[in-house]
Design a protein around this nucleic acid. Structure first.
Lengths: 249, 249
DNA sequence: TTACATTTAAATGTCTGACAATTTTGGCGC
DNA sequence: GCGCCAAAATTGTCAGACATTTAAATGTAA
């Protein structure tokens, strides 16, 4: 982690990549302190601002953290599930919004992923998971609940379903994917608001998990997907009519 | 996107967040040009190096790209599947390696995710997908194939399986997850090298997809998972007793 | 000896000003 | 019209300086 052949790319990008490689390949371990900015500038034979730009690139990816003061500096970060989770969601959300992903595609992907964890969730769900799901269902049934709170509760319910599988890697991937699609999903819930049906399907999912009946859980998820899809299409159609009001019937 | 209340956080972090919010919330659209560094420095009332650090943070997340020269500057990036995919893989790989995720957990998550796409893949697979899978199986059967090439072919095979579902969002999440776990998986394939069994199971998966038999595909994937898990445990056990080799049957 | 206040040093955060490199635009001569 | 060149705008990089923060070291008093 020293050499820096004078390419045409940005020096700060090259330095960031060199340090990133050192971290990824395990040559630097968690909580290890990087040399100070001045020392790095010496090593790479660049100025301190250039080194700083490189460090900011790494900080943006949560690969390092910095601490001011004596014996401060840049330290290799332990990439926590929480940190990675946040990045995953931001990236996925932007990917959806910037590439005009259709509601159908997102919906299909979401429920396909969620069904991936149902067999494990049925096998391993604890009383805690079931209690969380029941509590969220109960909250969803309360009349005065705002749309925002309903959506939040919906996320919490599905998050509990995913966590019930008892596999943190699965939780990371699935919960990130589900949460990233929430803005799209919210659009539906806000407009079509059919809480009774959703609440009923949630109850069926919780029942299936309690009974450890994976088939029933998957069936209920299929129905929830179909229902969501129908609502989504209605909303889309209404949108289309509003912006281009052509009577087609 | 102007104000910057004098907090205690880094100015460059605050500025980066302000611009990121503007992009995420759609106030800046794809390919739109940001003000020049000097103008941003004026707007936020900071110096140019501070602005530059903020821009580097955003560049590290592929949110913007920069171009030198007249009428150059920073532009909002369209977050492509490829770009997001790379970030997803890097983050997930680090998450696995830094948190000592067990092989069992990773393996379980991987195949659970992969099974999530089999029904869709069976329904939608095209001749192209089948041809790719057959070609990779054929390559895997060749005797002189290096371990590296075998692993690459393995990834390509599973990538084709995922892509066969015809859902780019699903492909993004699944392929990213699968590829991030490849280092762990490689450790197994390199050591235990039982290519015939794997090749046979791959053939069964391809056959099932061709016959559009989702159940058969899932069964084969379950068997592949069980087999991989067995191999993994053997390798782990061998590792554990590498100093005292006890023959256990 | 212990507890607390002060100093000190190391490091990051920020600023100023300058120059280099690059790329588009427009003008000039032919 | 075409090719060449200069100008302008913008990012990339550098050097040096000062401000701020923080932990350790030191000094001081009970």
């Amino acid at each position: 982690m020293k050499i820096d052949p004078s390419n045409k790319a940005d020096l700060s990008a090259q330095i960031a990549e060199a340090i990133r490689d050192a971290i990824v390949e395990g040559r630097m371990i968690v909580d290890e302190r990087l040399p100070s900015e001045a020392e790095l500038a010496d090593q790479f034979e660049v100025s301190r601002p250039t080194v700083r730009e490189a460090l900011k690139r790494l900080a943006a990816q949560s690969l390092i953290r910095t601490q001011r003061g004596a014996f401060g500096g840049a330290f290799v970060n332990r990439l926590s599930y929480e940190g990675a989770y946040g990045q995953h969601i931001t990236t996925s959300t932007l990917l959806l919004s910037m590439n005009a992903v259709s509601f159908e595609t997102a919906c299909e992907a979401r429920y396909a992923l969620e069904r991936a964890c149902t067999p494990l969730a049925c096998a391993r769900r604890t009383a805690d998971h079931l209690a969380t799901m029941r509590a969220e269902i109960h909250r969803q049934a309360q009349p005065g609940l705002s749309d925002e709170s309903f959506c939040a509760s919906d996320v919490a319910f599905h998050r509990a379903l995913v966590d019930a599988a008892g596999n943190p890697v699965l939780s990371y991937h699935l919960a990130g994917a589900v949460e990233a699609m929430q803005p799209l999903m919210n659009m539906i819930t806000f407009t079509a608001r059919s809480r009774e049906v959703i609440e009923h399907l949630h109850t069926r999912i919780a029942d299936a998990l309690q009974a450890q009946d994976a088939t029933a859980a998957e069936t209920a998820l299929h129905e929830l997907e179909a229902y969501t899809l129908t609502l989504g299409r209605d909303v889309m159609a209404a949108h289309a009519r509003k912006s281009a009001p052509v009577s087609s019937g």
